[in-house]
Design a protein around this nucleic acid. Structure first.
Length: 509
RNA sequence: CGGGCUGUGGCUCAGCUUGGUAGAGCGCUUCGUUCGGGACGAAGAGGCCGCGGGUUCGAAUCCCGCCAGCCCGACCA
């Protein structure tokens, strides 16, 4: 076995997009389904999503939100009410037109012509309109506000180029929808939920993100402001990991969310919406996985520790398994961020090497081997997925459980530090057009290699300059960072106009 | 939706140019030998060769159409 052999081929450096797909498969996270653009999320991948849901849901509850559920199908007329919104989504809507199938002349099933719907229904690409229509019924008085609701749901957008987790036609997400009495309150909510996303990305996904506001061209259809968190993944491209929208009164006017104010005047509510999706799983893969497969940050890992009993001889099998069970019980008694440490004992009767590699590829944070020799020495061999695949620490068995929480947190922190280091190494202040174009231009156009990163450069505010750079380099403004200090400069596109602050530029997913 | 490439057992692919009844490696099953490691041997299972039509005595192979996937563009959480 050569030392350079990796579990995943090609490697990240050889072919990043293909590497990504191979990781998804090798880690048993998901697979493509027979329906174009739709994925089957497998137990290991879904377990990660469940942990994301748990973490986020807790944050939502802590900020006063409650969950509810709205219909999958939206009357077409609802979508039409907000002009920018329908324009933004029309191109990717799946439409339900019939409510019955029948056998046609050719013997095959077809939608029954007699069962055509009077008004087509759209499979929700997002739920602003139907939720808005519902809120309109709920809101009479300023005393009915705010409404702070979140929905966990699937949505459907007919995508041209699907990619597992990153851009699928159907995806799972949460969408928060709130309605407020005042503009200031809605703005505060928009900002608050972005803060929740930033914290969640940092603490759970080990993903450092930039926070900021989208430019007009990147804004959610129908929004006044779109705030976002943007992460850099290992090929140095940006991934939009979450958005929070201030919708002003646009949707309230479209849906008729009106109330009688404290001054006894009829007013439109101010609304927000915010969401993150299963794309976060894709972001975590692209950020943390390596050439041997996935690395799951402990806080979203369905299993924290896998115990791999080494049972070379039948006569040692029982004592080894007994020791494994005992260790598992001790580990499960430990609490990692308030919940029991999740432990699995892999007793499958397959080759030890194969078994070990399966867990490496799945990215379980900690692997513990326990065999006859360990029993004699009262120790185990512990491997961390954030370290080399061959590395093992021999730990006294009595130390394993007391130290596990610290180990998991150390892995979590290490993943974050790595991610942050990568981002900082590839984020640059760029002043001139020449340097900017150089930074983002691939050396080999037929197979663009990893290059560039994030550029902090001046922008005069013109949509034309933004469009020009997008056309030339496929580079977009990821956000106008909140923390960008006021600083005078010249627009990086070469238009010569003055700029007051730097914005964040990158190629994106 | 445009441009390029590709569809052959679960996976990766050979065979196609010069038509003659389907192959390899990996994986899977069983048995044996192994066993701190993705081990080795033997015997097996598994394929309307993407789909539809055409040419032909005969099509994985030639022709036409369609569909799907990947990469690149446009669009996007």
């Amino acid at each position: 076995m050569s030392e350079t052999k990796t579990a995943i081929t090609p490697t990240r450096a050889q072919d990043f997009p293909e590497w990504y797909q191979q990781v998804v498969r090798a880690a048993d996270l998901a697979e493509n389904s027979d329906v174009r653009g739709c994925m089957v999320i497998k137990p290991w991948g879904y377990g990660i999503w469940e942990n994301m849901q748990r973490g986020l849901d807790r944050f939502f509850k802590e900020t006063g939100h409650r969950n509810a559920y709205f219909p999958l199908l939206i009357p077409l007329s609802y979508l039409e009410k907000e002009a920018a919104h329908v324009e933004g989504f029309a191109k990717e809507c799946a439409v339900v037109t019939h409510h019955r199938l029948e056998v046609g002349a050719d013997g095959k099933m077809r939608p029954a012509p007699a069962a055509q719907l009077a008004e087509p229904l759209v499979v929700r690409p997002t739920s602003e309109t139907i939720i808005g229509a519902t809120y309109a019924k709920w809101v009479q008085s300023y005393r009915d506000l705010p409404i702070l609701i979140n929905q966990w749901a699937n949505v459907f957008r007919w995508e041209m180029r699907p990619r597992v987790f990153l851009r699928t036609a159907e995806f799972l997400w949460q969408e928060g929808h709130t309605a407020h009495e005042t503009e200031a309150e809605a703005l505060e909510e928009t900002q608050k939920m972005l803060g929740v996303y930033e914290k969640f990305a940092r603490e759970f996904l080990a993903l450092p993100v930039f926070t900021g506001e989208k430019t007009e061209s990147e804004r959610f259809p129908g929004a006044i402001k779109t705030l976002c968190i943007e992460a850099m993944v290992q090929d140095r491209k940006a991934i939009q990991a979450g958005t929070s929208h201030f919708l002003g009164q646009n949707f309230a006017k479209a849906s008729g969310i009106q109330f009688l104010s404290r001054e006894n005047k009829m007013e439109f509510a101010w609304t927000t919406s915010w969401g993150v999706s299963t794309r976060l799983i894709g972001a975590a893969i692209m950020m943390h996985a390596d050439d041997d497969g996935m690395i799951v940050p402990p806080r979203i890992a369905p299993t924290h520790v896998v115990i791999l009993p080494v049972t070379p001889k039948p006569e040692t099998r029982e004592p080894v398994l007994a020791a494994a069970e005992k260790l598992a019980t001790e580990l499960r008694a430990q609490k990692f961020h308030g919940a029991a440490v999740e432990v699995e004992i892999d007793k499958r009767d397959i080759g030890g090497g194969v078994k070990n590699w399966e867990w490496i590829k799945k990215g379980v944070p900690v692997r513990i081997e326990i065999g006859p020799r360990d029993l004699e020495k009262n120790s185990v061999a512990l491997s961390r997925r954030d370290q080399g695949v061959k590395e093992k620490q021999f730990v006294p068995v009595s130390d394993v459980a007391p130290q596990i929480v610290e180990t998991l947190q150390s892995i979590q922190d290490n993943l974050f530090s790595r991610a942050l280091a990568l981002r900082e190494a590839h984020t640059r202040d760029i002043a001139t057009r020449e340097e900017f174009y150089n930074f983002f231009t691939p050396q080999n156009n037929s197979k663009p290699e990893i290059h560039g990163g994030f550029a902090r450069s001046h922008w005069c505010g013109s949509a034309d300059c933004e469009a020009k750079i997008k056309e030339d380099l496929k580079v977009t403004i990821r956000c106008i960072p909140f923390d960008a200090p006021e600083e005078h400069g010249t627009c990086v596109c070469g238009c010569g106009r003055a700029s007051k602050r730097r914005v964040l530029w990158a190629k994106s997913y």
